[in-house]
Amino acid sequence: MMHAFGNTPTLYEEKQMKKYFAEFFGTFWLVFGGCGSAVLAAAYPELGIGFAGVALAFGLTVLTMAYAVGHISGGHFNPAVSVGLFIGGRFNGKDLLPYIVSQVIGAIAAAGVLYLIASGKTGFDAVASGFASNGFGEHSPNGYDMMAALLIEFVLTAFFLIIIMGSTDKLAPAGFAPIAIGLGLTLIHLISIPVTNTSVNPARSTGVALFQGGWAIEQLWLFWLAPIAGAAVGAAIYRFVLANDDK
């Protein structure tokens, strides 16, 4: 592996690039698996997975990739998680922007592949179907307003960070964190799919919104603001209220 100017990258640089690739592939899998289950399966009732199946699919993507690449990058796959772990003192700020960029690119790539697959069915329309995008008001699955969307995305992301930080604590049982995190994300989706179609992840929201191309982009701000704010609060709660200072 060579740089453009012929310099061989250092071992540190190679490790950093592996982290960014791990975040790319992990976020790709989350969006492709979670949103793919919604677009390709849940949209057709006769196939029977329903919204509970979509919730489980999102949880399984995080669980499987946390085991697969979590030891490389920490397994964030979500800009809100990266920000939260930084606030919680678990993540180096110098990696924050590269992680977020890697996650967003991974989400867009996954949404692009999903769009190509979905377009193979006659009559598919990403704009009309919503393409698994997150929304509020008339674009909420059950018609919830903007304040309800803000509140649920904030609260659920805060608790997601508490789950993540608690299950990865040095005092927590070793090796079980991906299970707790994956099941936590499943529960989050079971609660909030009817409200916002569930984001708690700005990258996930961005990837599909770009292909929906209309209202999803207009409402995207909420699915960056609420999850990141919730993650920051949840991480601060764990760090300053719940964490054991004697460990």
Rank of each mutant, 00 (worst) to 15 (best):
F25E: 00
G26Y: 08
T27W: 07
W29R: 00
W29Y: 07
L30M: 10
F32E: 05
F32T: 00
G33E: 03
G33H: 00
G33I: 04
G33R: 04
G34Y: 08
G34E: 07
G36R: 13
S37G: 06
S37C: 13
S37H: 03
A38V: 03
A38H: 04
V39M: 08
V39D: 04
A42D: 12
Y44Q: 10
E46Y: 04
L47S: 09
G50V: 11
A52M: 14
G53K: 12
V54P: 01
V54C: 11
V54E: 12
A55S: 15
L56M: 15
A57Q: 06
F58P: 00
F58L: 02
L60W: 03
T61E: 15
V62F: 08
V62H: 08
T64V: 15
A66I: 03
A66S: 15
A66Q: 14
Y67I: 14
A68M: 14
A68T: 15
V69F: 14
G70C: 12
H71M: 10
H71K: 15
H71S: 15
H71E: 09
S73P: 15
G75I: 06
H76F: 09
P79I: 10
P79E: 14
A80L: 13
S82A: 15
S82L: 09
V83E: 07
G84M: 10
L85S: 11
L85H: 08
I87P: 00
G89M: 13
G89H: 15
R90A: 14
N92P: 05
N92L: 12
K94E: 01
K94Y: 00
K94V: 06
L97Y: 00
L97G: 02
L97E: 04
P98H: 02
Y99K: 11
Y99W: 03
V101S: 06
V101D: 07
S102C: 06
S102V: 00
V104G: 01
V104Q: 05
V104K: 03
G106N: 02
I108Y: 02
I108L: 12
I108S: 08
A110E: 02
A110C: 06
A111G: 01
A111T: 02
A111Q: 04
A111I: 01
G112K: 08
G112C: 09
